[in-house]
Computed example of a mutant assay.
Amino acid sequence: MGDAHHMLRETAPGTFLIRDSYQCNVFFTLSYQGEDHPKSIRLLLANHLFGMDGSSKTFGSLFALLVHYITSSKKIVAPYRWQRPETLQQLGRRAVIRAHGAHAIDSLPGLSAQVRAYLHAYPFWV
């Protein structure tokens, strides 16, 4: 909890993250930046449904729970991002390199010079 609260301390109110719970009867914990300081709420899983501790509302998935509370409560509004997610272009480049190897880029059919250059620019060869 301390690490999560430290990470959220300098973020905008409503920024949240989901973390594992160390309590055996708690599935996950949602930590979020409140108006004055970070707070944490237990996320429970019972009868294949997710819910927040203290609430009678339940949801079929963790994502459905998050969507509900993001759109209704305004206490959680945006996920904490330590790193920006990769673009689809970057994910595609990595998939091509993994599937074919860097040595095969020039022999792949149908690639434009621009795509070949982008594939060759991949900094992490597999």
Score class of each variant (00 low, 15 high):
10 E>N: 15
99 A>H: 13
69 Y>N: 12
41 I>C: 12
30 L>K: 02
102 A>V: 06
105 I>Q: 04
33 Q>F: 02
121 A>V: 04
103 H>L: 06
35 E>F: 03
7 M>D: 13
49 L>P: 00
85 P>I: 05
125 W>L: 15
13 P>T: 05
51 G>I: 01
43 L>H: 00
82 W>E: 09
99 A>I: 03
118 Y>T: 08
80 Y>L: 14
39 K>C: 13
108 L>M: 12
19 R>F: 04
66 L>Y: 03
121 A>P: 05
63 F>G: 02
109 P>D: 08
47 N>L: 05
27 F>S: 06
118 Y>H: 10
51 G>L: 11
8 L>C: 06
29 T>P: 00
101 G>I: 03
96 V>Q: 12
19 R>K: 14
1 M>P: 08
15 T>F: 00
72 S>Q: 11
87 T>L: 08
44 L>W: 03
50 F>P: 09
126 V>D: 11
31 S>Y: 01
117 A>E: 09
124 F>T: 14
99 A>T: 13
125 W>T: 14
35 E>V: 09
86 E>S: 08
20 D>A: 12
43 L>E: 00
85 P>C: 02
31 S>D: 09
100 H>S: 04
4 A>D: 12
32 Y>T: 06
81 R>C: 11
96 V>D: 09
12 A>S: 15
91 L>D: 09
42 R>C: 11
3 D>M: 08
21 S>I: 13
51 G>W: 01
105 I>Y: 02
38 P>Y: 05
38 P>T: 07
16 F>W: 08
36 D>Q: 13
